[in-house]
């Protein structure tokens, strides 16, 4: 029976964790399909003049590059786990 090495298993778990963390962060901050924002706009209304005006407040909104980064990190870690496992199988 083929055994998975501890290093390989750690890499795979880390890959899944990275993917879930990126996906979770992206969903939790609003599933924004644009670039990452470090501030949010809240629309306000001035009663006397009738002017609608944006107020920018600090706030993190993860963009698609965060999601892409998580997927890329997971792919690299997953690929490395396969590589380390293959080397171990070959040396056994």
């Amino acid at each position: 029976m083929k055994k998975t090495s501890r290093l390989s298993l750690t890499l795979r778990v880390t890959a899944i964790a990275a993917l879930l963390a990126a996906l979770g962060l992206w969903v939790a901050t609003g599933s924004h399909r644009g670039w990452t924002q470090t501030s949010k706009v809240i629309q306000q209304h001035d009663e006397i003049t009738g002017i609608d005006y944006p107020v920018r407040v600090p706030g993190f909104v993860a963009g698609v590059e965060v999601l892409a980064g998580g997927v890329a990190a997971a792919a690299v870690l997953g690929g490395a786990s396969l590589f380390t496992n293959r080397r171990r199988t070959a040396s056994a």
Binding site: R33, G34, W35, V41, Q44, D46, T49, I51, Y53, P54, R56, V64
Partner: peptide
Amino acid sequence: GVNNVQFKLDAPLESITGT
């Protein structure tokens, strides 16, 4: 501090908007 100019430029992923 109510006075504002908002600008928007179309871009492939999302419009670039600012104030």
